[in-house]
Nucleic acid binder design. Structure first.
Length: 423
RNA sequence: GGUGAGGUGGCUGAGUGGUCGAAAGCACAGCUUUGCUAAAGCUGCGUACCGGAAACGGUACCGAGGGUUCGAAUCCCUCCCUCACCGCCA
């Protein structure tokens, strides 16, 4: 949510920044400002009337104490009361409209955000490792896992339909080992607090982190839309601090969690249909930071490095790209995507998206801290996948496949997995 | 799910339908004094919004939302949450 004061102060600047995203969000700015003006005028009028009522009502009390007749003056207040409820409705209406607009206007891309309309314009920031030299043809994870009995698509379809998968045997164990390995890394080496949150989420929290109201169709609702299945642990983790005034000494707050993630993938039908690259339910370890506003951009570098560390430890080749303005998520001001190389796909797969939301989420959820002057100021929030599991699983299988059909387990994972190969 | 008790400022905790944004204590901040591993006194100390360049002024907020009333923390209704006991259950 943008700061209405900031929008009031520099409407043209805000519009210009929104324009870099493409789309038509900038058009809502004028509507927002009109609404703001109406709202404030009505608010001022209402407050004046309330002041009158308060004052005169007190007089009535005093007069009655003296036993005087107050019939006439009571009628006067009754009239003011009617005016207050009339103007009060206007205030409410304008208030609601303004809030709706503010909740749907995306964040401003940061000043140096690369220009561009879509993912083809995302610049590569850095690259780690090299594409593995495989003996023979690169098979894809579906073939590899099929031979080893790691994934069961038919069973998943029977249970839940398309877009789901059952991990079986060593596959299920590998999934579990990866979760453990990633959490251990973030908690043990990067100083995160480990969290195990609920997966069913209140609507207010989904609004807080920005999944709603804009992306309703992407979330699984339960209980008639009162609750939602978590689309990412970002939602419960960040909302841990909703409606709170944290202490500046707590910065940086670092929390990590494993959760399954549920997404309808509305609008993505037909994309990435082979294998487990795009699922309605997938596992992910998420890392969330809450920091002082002065620190957030530096912290984004740290957080991204922490996510990269997972891939480095597993010896997986990857690249980091920065999202251009046109590809940037609605809530984010700056995002790095980490893409791991998957030899069987012949392409890089996004396994992590690391974003700085500045105060956009904090303002939505009322997450503040007391600054040096004792003022309540909105924190900055960041998050990143650390990392998404199915695609990591794909990269692992395809990178470490052996000519004999087995899959080697990288050194760093053997402790968690309990073996040095599958098959 | 049932029954009972509660939800007041950072915490504890008073509160009569009108002078209550709310006593008192604690905590916290500043000042003063005496001095020494502290004490006493004084002062200040909620949040949001509106107006204002600012100083400051105003309005609202006593779990949430409705209602009664000229006027509600205080009366009525609904809901939520917490605690206790009971029932059920992984």
């Amino acid at each position: 949510m943008l700061d209405i004061r900031a929008v009031r102060e520099d409407p043209e600047g805000v519009k210009a920044q929104l324009k870099t995203r493409g789309g038509d969000a900038f058009g809502q700015v004028d509507e927002l400002l009109r609404c703001d003006e109406v709202r404030r005028a009505a608010e001022t009028e209402k407050q004046k009337l309330q002041g009158d009522r308060k004052r005169i009502s007190k007089e009535i009390g005093a007069l009655k104490g003296k036993g005087e007749d107050t019939t006439e003056i009571e009628a006067q207040v009754r009239e003011i009361g009617a005016q207050i409820s009339a103007i009060g409705r206007q205030v409410e209406e304008a208030d609601q409209k303004q809030r709706d607009l503010l909740l749907s206007i995306p964040n401003l891309p940061h000043a140096k955000c690369p220009a561009g309309a879509d993912e083809t314009a995302n610049p590569e920031v850095r690259c780690w490792g090299e594409k593995p030299a495989l003996d023979g043809e690169a098979r894809d994870h579906v073939a590899i896992a099929g031979d080893l009995g790691l994934l069961d698509f038919e069973a998943a379809t029977k249970i839940s339909g398309s877009g789901f998968v059952v991990f079986r045997g060593q596959g299920a164990k590998l999934e579990r080992a990866l979760i453990q390995f990633m959490l251990d890394t973030h908690v043990g080496e990067h100083g995160y607090e480990e969290v195990s949150p609920p997966f069913i989420i209140q609507r207010e929290c989904m609004i807080g982190t920005g999944q709603l109201p804009k992306f309703e169709e992407e979330a699984y609702g339960v209980l008639d839309g009162e609750m939602y299945l978590a689309p990412t642990a970002e939602v419960p983790l960040t909302n841990l601090y909703r409606e709170m005034i944290v202490k500046a000494e707590q910065f940086p707050i670092k929390v990590a969690a494993y959760t399954p993630c549920f997404r309808t993938e509305a609008g993505a039908a037909g994309r990435d249909t082979r294998g487990i690259i795009r699922m309605h339910q997938f596992d992910k370890v998420e890392i969330v930071n809450i920091v002082h506003p002065d620190e957030s951009f530096a912290q984004l570098e740290t957080l991204t490095a922490e996510a990269e560390k997972i891939l480095q430890k597993l010896g997986l080749h990857y690249r980091v790209i920065e999202l251009c303005a046109g590809d940037l998520g609605a809530n984010s001001t700056k995002t790095y995507d980490i893409e791991v190389w998957a030899p069987g796909q012949g392409q890089y797969l996004e396994v992590s998206s690391c974003s700085n939301f500045v105060d956009y989420q904090a303002r939505r959820m009322g997450l503040r801290f007391k600054d040096a002057d004792g003022k309540n100021v909105f924190c900055h929030t960041l998050n990143g996948s650390g990392t998404a599991l199915p695609r990591l699983f794909v990269a692992l299988l395809e990178t470490y496949q052996q000519p004999d059909g087995s899959v080697a387990i990288p050194e760093t994972l053997r402790g968690h997995f309990g073996a040095d190969k599958i098959g």
